[in-house]
Each structure stands twice: as C-alpha cells, then as structure tokens.
Amino acid sequence: MFRLTDEKMFRGFATFLLTTLTVITLLPIILIVIASFTDETALISNGYAYFPKAWSLNAYYYLINQGKLIFRAYGVTILVTLVGTLASVLFTTMLAYPMSRKNFKYRRILSFFVFFTMLFNGGIVSSYMMWTNIFGIKNSIWALILPNYLVTAFNVFLVRNYYANNVHESIIESAQIDGATELRIFWKIIMPLSVPVVATISLFTALIYWNDWLNGLYYITKSEYFGIQNLLIKIMNNVQFLKSGSSNFLGVGNMNLPGTSVRMAMAVIGILPIILIYPFLQKYFIKGVIVGAVKG
C-alpha cells in the first residue's frame, strides 16, 4: 500500500513539473505562430502579442504563391531525410557494434579513429574539392545526403555506449558457442536489442537532414534540388532584402511584401511536418521500454 502511494505521489509530481516545463517551452513558440497570423503593421507598431490587434493571412498567401516551389522542396527534403536516415542508422550501428565488443582487438584504435573526426576537420574548401571533383556529386540528390552527416562521431559513440552497457557479453558468447557468424549475431541478436538507441539516432539524424541547408548551399545551384530549408532561407533573406530600401526595382504597383510575419510563417512551415510525424516515431521509444522489460 505504502509503495503505491509513493509511486503515485512521484507520478503526480512528475506530471506537474513536466506540465510546467512544457507550458514554458511552448509559450514562445505559440508567439511565433500567432505572429505569423498577425497583421504586419500591428506587429511593428505594437510588437508581438498573444492577442494581436489585427489578424491577417497575408504571410500564408505569400507562401502559397510560391506553391510549386515549396511542394517540390518538401519532396526533396523528405526523400533526403528518409534515405539519409536509413543509411545513417545502418552505417552507424555497424560501426558502433564492433567498438562495443570488449574483446575486439582494434577497439581503442577504432574509437580514436572515430573520435578524431569530431575534433579536426579540413574545412569546407577541401571537402568541397573532394566531393565535387572526385565524386562529382554537385547538383545531384547525393550532394544532400552524402557529405557530413551520414556517420557522425556523436551518434557512433551513443550507440557504442548503449551496446557496451545494455548488451551482455554472455548473450554474444552463447551465440558464438552455437556457431553463429558475427554478421548473424549482429543482425539477429544485436539489432532487435537496439530499438531505443536506434530510435534516438534516427530522430537525431532525421532532424539534421531536415534542418540542413549547408549542403544545399555548397553543392546545389540548380533550383530543382533545393530542399525546404534552402528555399525558406532564400525567401527569407530575399524578403528581408527587398524590404531594405532596394525594392524600387519591383516595378509598378510594388509587391506589398509582408516581412516579419512571413518569416514567422516560414518557421511554422519548416517545423510543421515534424510536429505531424513525430508522434508516430515516438512509439518506438515506448516500445524500447517494453523490449527492455521483456529481456529481463
């Protein structure tokens, strides 16, 4: 009886704390969403407000005008995120697993090899030269997937660490005695045990690919291959630019460009898909809890 109350109390306490934290976290974001629906002049004379004096859909009209571009860019980004994340998870777990094995001869060397990449890099110039001249990926979808993010030291260490602490050497030993090959052990035994950490790194990698605009900036000049972040950043900066006194060149009737509210609307558009997809991804975290339980 006593134990139950203790647990209940703790649960209540946790709910309370997390609710508070969530509200605090969300307030600024709600402000952005509201700002994206606020009339531009009201935004400037009264500042951002939770209850603005005048509402307006202009920012979204402006974005809808760019319709075809935005759809295509979403397509590019979704494709890149899916392929990139899948490949990344595979490469990362395969690299991390041997590093986690205590009796693997090259364990330390390999760890150092991986970690070193986190500290030193040759800079953008040399990697640009290599990717474009040797691999010729400029202006292709590979340019958005291959450079920089496929295997990151951070993720490798997360996974290695997870294996080292959650996969008992004894499981592997018994499989070895049964005569399973290393690849089979990895695929049949290790992978099913990795659900929580795989969920974690897929999420991280997906976020990286989703939010990336640097690869697009460096390797893409053809607008067919712009991802959503590249497009948003371009529009955002162009709008800013047109607003800055140079827009006399817009010709007659001057487009009435919304400024700040458009930028906010873009922020909303950029995160919207993630908000929609994330709850589906999340069940794997919960599943992770169950896997852990079954194992015991």
């Binding site: 953008i124 110039v125 640009y128 030269m129 474009t132 001249n133 400029k138 900036l217 460096y218 000049t221 371009k234 900066n237 162009n238 630019f241």
Partner: peptide
C-alpha cells in the same frame, strides 16, 4: 547562366573557384 541568391553569392563563387569549378 549561373544565377546565385545574393546572400550566398560571394561564398558560393569563392568555393567553386577554389574547388576548381
């Protein structure tokens, strides 16, 4: 023709030239 958005023009040109493009 190679149009480049104004805000990354300089870095893009310099990178391409350095990379032998």
């Amino acid at each position: 023709l190679l149009p480049i958005a104004i805000f990354d023009y300089s870095s893009s040109v310099s990178l391409t030239l350095q990379g032998g493009g």
